[in-house]
Amino acid sequence: MSSLRRSVLVHLGALVLAVWTLVPLVWLVLTSVKPSNEFASKPLRFLPTDFDFSNYPRLLGFDATSPSGTKLGPSAHSSLIVDGLINSAEVAVAVTIISLMVSVPASYALARLNLRWREMGLMAIVATRAIPPIATTIPFFALFSTLGLSGTRTGLVIAHLTIAVPLLVWIGTSFFASMPAGLEKMARIDGCSRFQAMTKIVIPAALPSITAMGVIAFLTSWNEFMFALIFNTGSDAQTFPSALASMFFQVSVPTEVAAATCLGLLPPLLLATVFQRFIRKVNFVGI
């Protein structure tokens, strides 16, 4: 194969890969800014004639003006979406804090102490990730109905911890194991107790990795759908994914649903962008 032909083929392949990856996403964003009388026009247009951003403020509960000058009130689904976003944020923050509090010391111990049952403990914690979510949903549903936890944020936080904690222990163990050996020994020589060696020396040095763990915990909770759908749909504690599902299956304007989806994607994309240099260190093989 001549090098010119090879280069042409490679560039063609790259174009195909770019189209395959990006077109579905671009189409959603374009649909969200199409005027509501145009998204299903015949024949279908690839690009809107006018960019209409009014769906975004209207979903957040504000008035907006369309490009043609019509004044529009808030979307019929705005309270659903806004409440969903707030609940999602609250649940995700709680999950992040609790899962960090329990998994940072645990992964420190599993990675850096010479424990007899180290391998077994790690295996037991990580093996829980193999259980399909639908299998734990049913007993949780029964348990939460008895305890009055269904339809509450607390219940959803507990459910999300079952996913987030084993994941964080797995990632955290590999983080702590990759730090230089002997950190503790130096801390002990300088007069730290064994506990202080962890809290004053190792954990501060591991802050970037712990930040990555926190971001992953937040995203895990924010992106989770099945528990959110089954436990909290229709309640005051409904989070964004189930709010979006309700909107999706009710009578709704497709351009508004597209805009709502984009709104829900903003927080994780922002987080991932801001913290990407921390996240890139994660060993994703275990996930």
Partner: peptide, 30 residues
Amino acid sequence: PFSSRITTNRYGLLLVAPVLVLTGLIVVYP
């Protein structure tokens, strides 16, 4: 200090205990 007096295995167990309890309660039990 307390953390330096106990054996390594016990100290480790103490740090992992919250996760073990949590895993037990929210995974093994369901």
